[in-house]
Design a protein around this nucleic acid. Structure first.
Length: 582
RNA sequence: GGGGGCGUAGCUCAGUUUGGUUAGAGCACUCGACUGUCACUCGAGAGGUCGCGGGUUCGAGCCCCGUCGCUCCCGCCA
């Protein structure tokens, strides 16, 4: 292929097919840059080796047309080499050209323009064929392919079987909205597209297919983001007769193999942190460990202060927690006000600010703190202390966002650093503070910690789950759990989650319960967000840049023009009638 | 569901603050010139539903109302 030609190929007679990337007509002397998926190579048309009619044809070809060129690979004289091009040491001296696929003038440029700015996202998606010709996107899809092959190679070597699961399946009442597919043969009944193959992979374990994986397409009808699509791809893994350590070791190996494919060595094993520790130190269950700015408990230092706001918060069972920000004592009133707005946006009532300058603690609350209390804050000169008083449920998310903003401002976020982390021991349930209803933090099939169940049989909110998340630089790469394999425990979980009726449990999850009752091995697994990993490793800003035909944030496919209306007779056959939205 | 940004030539943008004659630039395109370019260069030309609809006004790309599209964020995503 033309883009792969190098100096060692000099002298070879070649026939190349490709797209005209750019052309330069010097009058009697023509150069075409020929592009294929390997890169770009210069084809030169010169009366010394090209006939006049061939030169005339070459001068006439429009960019983005497909041509077949015959010629000889020739080493370029030193002064004519192009060091910006992989093929820059050679050129192809053309003897013949054939335009096999003439192109109309492209709606969006493929070869980068002078200012280098890509066209608007809408145009890129509408003219996706041209967009995907751009070397940057073509490279992304080639990387994505290699990551898939690495995944398969690694899991195959580990003894896992790649098994497909249905795309037409059963609606799941929990979780995200389902995409529904009407059944022609059964009026009024619907399939759903899978949100994940979760139940199927557990059933494989019940089948004795004790190591399963799939690069699985998943569908969730929720609002989109730069890092979220309606349909996305997950590396889905499940295994039997294993424990948490087996899964974590296997998953680390997979992550290391993927990152290595993209040229990054990863140190194993990953450090670990419990959910409780992550929330205490960082206010977040997926902390970014590239910078410190840890949260500390300042309750005792503030305990004797006479500030009414703080005393109220403490009386309600809250704490005072805060972050010491080195070098931030000089931030302006306005800059700190902006941080307070961020904290308030995350639910905090306010943001306490204190700074130490020349050994003196300053700030609106400084007068409420005696010398001992001021010392107990542990401030150093030049440090700014930002604190939130209240229950952890409020202070954690607020301090998490303040911490991230401070890190950005101080330039502590280094894109070249990769800090992997396992977060372990998630709580099994999260309780809605108003209604008291329990919701599964991971999903309803996660096994609760048996010791916690025994120690607090009446208080499920204190049970930890055998769940784990893989985190990189504050992003969740994937997560999983050891599953409940005892049908009685699974049934109890459904009850706690608000489905106490046995018949209702059977109707919704009977096919899982049947599998568990048929004799289920201990099992567990993990799933990684494949698109997001591809995006990270490609250095892309959006998932759209690692997916061939993505949807817009308004959930449309601009290239295909989907979704679209369908003829009435199609609806009739499906026993459907549409209704205009109000 | 809510909030912010953007929408002017095929593409990237200026023009909108303060309404006023014929809406501009670069690239691309067409034609011409050019024998070593590689972001070729030079000359000429063509190209506009100022996203769409309505309103205010003697007059709207510009002001007002609505709407559509793209995008970022909050909610949402077990």
């Amino acid at each position: 292929m033309g883009g792969a030609l190098r100096r060692r190929d000099a002298g070879t007679v070649v026939t190349l097919g490709g797209w005209v990337h750019r052309s330069r007509d010097l009058g009697g002397l023509v150069f075409l840059d020929l592009r294929d998926r390997e890169g770009v190579v210069q084809v030169s048309f010169n009366p010394e080796w090209t006939s006049a009619d061939v030169i005339a044809q070459a001068a006439d070809v429009g960019v983005e047309s497909v041509v077949m060129v015959e010629g000889v690979v020739a080493e370029r004289p030193v002064e004519m080499r192009n060091k910006d091009l992989g093929t820059g040491e050679i050129e192809v001296r053309a003897t013949a050209i054939r335009v096999v696929g003439p192109a109309t003038t492209p709606a969006i440029p493929v070869a980068p323009a002078k200012d280098g700015k890509p066209p608007a996202e809408e145009l890129r998606l509408r003219h996706r064929v041209l967009d995907l010709r751009r070397p940057e996107l073509a490279r992304n899809l080639q990387l994505r392919h290699r990551l898939m092959q690495v995944t398969r190679g690694y899991l195959n070597d580990e003894g896992y079987l790649e098994i497909e699961t249905p795309i037409l399946t059963k609606p799941t009442p929990e979780g995200a909205r389902d995409f529904l597919v009407p059944s022609r043969m059964h009026p009024g009944e619907f399939f759903a597209l899978p949100q994940s193959p979760q139940i199927y992979k557990q059933l494989f374990m019940c089948c004795g297919l004790d190591r399963y994986y799939q690069i699985a397409r998943c569908f969730r009808d929720e609002d989109l983001r730069a890092d979220r699509q309606l349909e996305f791809t997950q590396i889905d893994i499940e295994a039997s007769f294993i424990g948490r350590e087996d899964i974590l070791a296997m998953a680390e190996g997979l992550v290391a193999a993927l990152w290595l494919e993209a040229g990054h060595a990863v140190e194993l094993p990953f450090p670990r942190m419990t959910y409780a520790e992550a929330m205490e130190r960082f206010g977040c269950d997926r902390p970014d460990l590239r910078y410190d700015l840890e949260i500390t408990d300042l309750t005792s230092a503030f305990g004797r202060s006479e500030s009414a706001i703080i005393q109220q918060a403490l009386a309600a069972g809250g704490r005072v927690r805060g972050i010491r920000v080195p070098g931030a004592a000089g931030w302006s009133r306005k800059q700190v006000d902006e941080l307070e707005a961020i904290a308030k946006g995350a639910g905090a009532g306010g943001l306490v600010r204190l700074k130490q300058v020349d050994g003196k603690v300053e700030g609106p609350l400084a007068k409420f703190l005696d010398e001992g209390a001021q010392r107990a804050l542990g401030l150093a000169d030049g440090e700014l202390l930002l604190a939130v008083a209240g229950p952890d449920r409020v202070s954690s998310p607020a301090l998490d966002r303040v911490r991230q903003e401070c890190a950005e401002r101080l330039g502590l976020v280094d894109d070249g650093v990769r800090r992997f982390l396992w977060v372990l021991d998630f709580p099994m349930f999260l309780q809605d503070p108003d209604s008291g209803a329990l919701a599964a933090v991971h999903h309803p099939f996660t096994a609760p910690n048996a010791e916690d169940m025994a120690a607090h049989p009446g208080d499920p909110s204190r049970w930890r789950a055998l769940a784990y998340d893989c985190v990189l630089n504050g992003m969740e790469l994937g997560g999983g759990s050891i599953r409940t394999s005892d049908p009685a425990v699974q049934s109890r979980m459904f009850t706690l989650l608000g489905i106490p009726d046995a018949a209702e449990q059977e109707r919704r999850f009977g096919f899982l319960l049947e599998g568990l009752r048929a004799g289920a091995p201990p099992h567990g697994g993990i799933a990684f967000g494949f698109d997001r990993i591809a995006m990270l490793l490609a250095g892309a800003a959006s998932l759209r840049d690692v997916i061939a035909f993505p949807k817009t944030t308004a959930a449309r496919a601009l290239f295909e023009g989907a979704p679209s209306r369908v003829p009435d007779e199609d609806l009739k056959e499906l026993h459907l009638r549409t209704r205009d939205p109000e």
